[in-house]
Simulated assay, not measured.
Amino acid sequence: MTLLKWLVVYAVMGWISTAEVKAAEALPEGVRIIKAASAEFQLRSAGLEHKGPAVVLLSGPNEHWHSDSGWFALLQPVLAAKYRTYAIDRLGQGLSSEVNNPSYRRFAEDLAVVLRALNEQEILLLSFASSSVSGLLFAHQNSRLKIQALLLIDPDIPLPGSIALYKGYPADWYKANLAQLLPELKTGVWTDRTAKKLQQERQLVQKLVPADYANQMDWAYFDFMAQQRLRIERQQSRAKEIAAYADDLDAYQALPFYTKRPVSVINSDFEQQQINQNPEQKSQLLAWQQEGDGWSKEQAQRSGGQYIELKDSDHLVLFQQPAVITKAVDWLMALPEK
Rank of each mutant, 00 (worst) to 15 (best):
V9E: 14
A11V: 00
M13Y: 11
I16T: 05
A19R: 09
E20M: 13
V21P: 06
K35T: 00
A36N: 03
F41S: 01
K51M: 12
P53L: 06
L58D: 05
E63G: 13
A73R: 01
Q76K: 09
P77Y: 05
A80Y: 01
A80G: 04
K82F: 10
V99P: 01
S103Y: 06
Y104R: 05
R106Q: 15
F107E: 12
A112I: 00
V113F: 05
V113M: 14
V114N: 12
L118K: 05
E120H: 00
Q121A: 09
L125Y: 09
L125W: 09
S134N: 04
G135V: 03
R144K: 13
K146P: 04
L150I: 02
D154H: 07
P158G: 10
P160C: 06
G161V: 01
S162K: 04
Y169S: 06
P170S: 02
L182H: 02
L182E: 09
W190M: 11
T191N: 14
T191G: 13
A195R: 13
A195C: 06
Q200H: 03
R202P: 03
V205N: 01
Q206R: 14
L208H: 00
D212Y: 08
A214I: 14
Q216K: 09
M217C: 06
A220N: 11
A226F: 08
L230M: 12
I232D: 08
R234L: 11
Q235Y: 09
Q236W: 07
Y258P: 01
P262G: 01
N267K: 04
F270Y: 15
E271P: 00
Q272N: 12
Q273W: 09
L286R: 07
D293Y: 06
D293R: 00
G294S: 15
Q299S: 04
A300W: 05
R302A: 03
S303E: 08
I308E: 11
I308S: 11
I308Y: 10
L316H: 10
V317I: 15
Q321W: 10
Q321C: 03
